[in-house]
Computed example of a mutant assay.
Amino acid sequence: MTLSKLLDRAWAPVAERIDAGRIPGAVLGLVSADGTVKTRHAGQAQLVPKPRPMREYTWFDLASLTKVIYTTPAILKLAEAGTIDLDAPITTVLPDLRHYNLDAWERKVTFRQCLGHQTPFPAVEPIYTYGRDPDLLRTFVLQREWQAGPSVYSDINFILLGFVIERLAKKKIRELDAGEGFDWEAEPIEAAATEDCYWRHRVLVGEVHDDNCAALQGSGHAGLFGPVTSVLDFAKGLLDGTGASAEAIRLMRTPLSSRRTHGWEHPHDGWSGGDHCGTEVIGHTGFTGTGLWIDFEAGHAWTLLTNRVHPTRHFDSGIGLLRRAVGDAINGA
Rank of each mutant, 00 (worst) to 15 (best):
A74F: 03
Y57D: 12
T119Q: 04
Y100I: 07
E280M: 03
V48R: 03
V228N: 03
P122W: 07
A81P: 04
D295V: 02
I173L: 15
L76T: 02
V109S: 07
L78D: 08
G43F: 10
I127K: 08
E207K: 05
L168S: 02
F182L: 11
D155L: 06
L78P: 11
L137M: 15
P122E: 13
P255W: 06
Y128H: 15
D275Q: 08
Q118R: 15
S151K: 14
D61K: 02
L115E: 11
P53W: 07
T58G: 01
T242I: 09
T36R: 10
L168I: 15
A12D: 08
A333L: 15
T288N: 10
T119E: 13
E187C: 01
V109T: 13
K38D: 12
A248Q: 06
L30R: 03
F182P: 09
Q44K: 11
T92V: 06
W293T: 04
V152P: 00
L251C: 01
S64M: 09
L168T: 07
H310K: 02
H221F: 07
V27G: 06
P150V: 11
R22S: 10
Q217K: 15
P255V: 10
A329S: 14
P53M: 09
R324M: 12
P24Y: 04
K77S: 03
L115W: 00
A193G: 03
F234Q: 01
N157Y: 01
G241T: 02
G43R: 00
G278I: 04
E145T: 10
F140I: 08
A12E: 12
V231P: 10
T303S: 15
V326R: 05
R132G: 13
F182E: 04
T242P: 11
S154V: 09
T285F: 04
L76A: 08
N101W: 06
T312D: 08
N101F: 09
P89Y: 04
E185Q: 14
L115F: 09
